[in-house]
Design a protein around this nucleic acid. Sequence first.
DNA 1: TTGGATGTAAACAACA
DNA 2: TTGTTGTTTACATCCA
Length: 354
Amino acid sequence: MAPMRGERGGSPARGARPSLPLPRRLIRQIARHVASSGRSLRRLEVSGRVIDNFDDIEDASDESDLEAPQPAVACGGNAGNLPPADHDDDLTSLSWLQDRNLLRGINLTKSDMEDSKMIASQVVIKSETSKTPPPVARVPSPPRTPCKAPPSPPAAPAHTKPPYSFSCLIFMAIEAAPARALPVKEIYAWIVKHFPYFKHAPQGWKNSVRHNLSLNKCFHKVAAAPGLGKGSLWTVDPQHRATFLQTLGRQPIPPAPPDSPPPCKNAPDPALFPFLARRLQASPPPPPGADEYRAAATVLAMKYGPAVLDQLPPAAHLVISRCARDEHSYSGGEERRTAEALLNLAGLAAHHAS
DNA sequence: TTGGATGTAAACAACA
DNA sequence: TTGTTGTTTACATCCA
């Protein structure tokens, strides 16, 4: 098989003029979302920049939306912990980022906590409520000190090799990502974060991860979208994802494809990975052909912060064109479809020479 | 004993 | 030039 080379494109040219920290359309969508819940958007803070005049936003054109040069949240390795959009229907806070349940049993470093707080502090949407919301039951915060001893039943000790195969680790990492797509670097970060063993493990394990990604049919490489930098996004093949879920004992077992992935010997511990467990339990398998959507959504999340994922249309509403040439070329088609999905997600029409 | 799955190491190319 | 990413090959180990 001919290796697919040269898929990593350069970074796109970006507009130099200062712009809103989020695309106007996304801000409008956030405002509409808040309004639809009976509240009015009063103030939006992104990266410390306050947006409080939404009339201007509403009237402004969408020009250069995608060229907003300032990402709301830097890609910092936390993507894997982001919960689904409906986790907290109150957009006024991203307190779920500091959901200690997510982190129970994991040795948190100070920087981990800071990262979490940083992201939560980057995007703040303040609204006025026209209906009286019920008081939000908050889980009492545990002490800030890192968990030295995992709660019983104990998962794998923090510094022993986890009982998961690399394919399972990769699957969990990708599955935990907001858009179910991650670059290799983020996969590394997720694994290290959740399995501190790898923090001090010999570097070869990264080679094993890449080896698995390349060799395992369960994982698909999605061409990098503009702005992502080096490397591609990796997704779990929907067909194989179903098999992964089956092997995790969460789904009825239809006939498995002939090249189904190897079963995970151990399901993720829900005590260790409550969010992942919830997601695996709740989410249906993504429709075929959703890779581009995931890739585009991931790029947006990395560029503008995870909050934008709340505002994205469902993948089914995306129109991603495919032409016969795409289906028969080894490269280029995926890139363009990802780019089109990205444009569609940002509310822009995709224009390309045909 | 055999074959498949898995882990590890290494070489290499392409790219930022 | 260096580090990262991605692919491929080879070999060892484990297990059914």
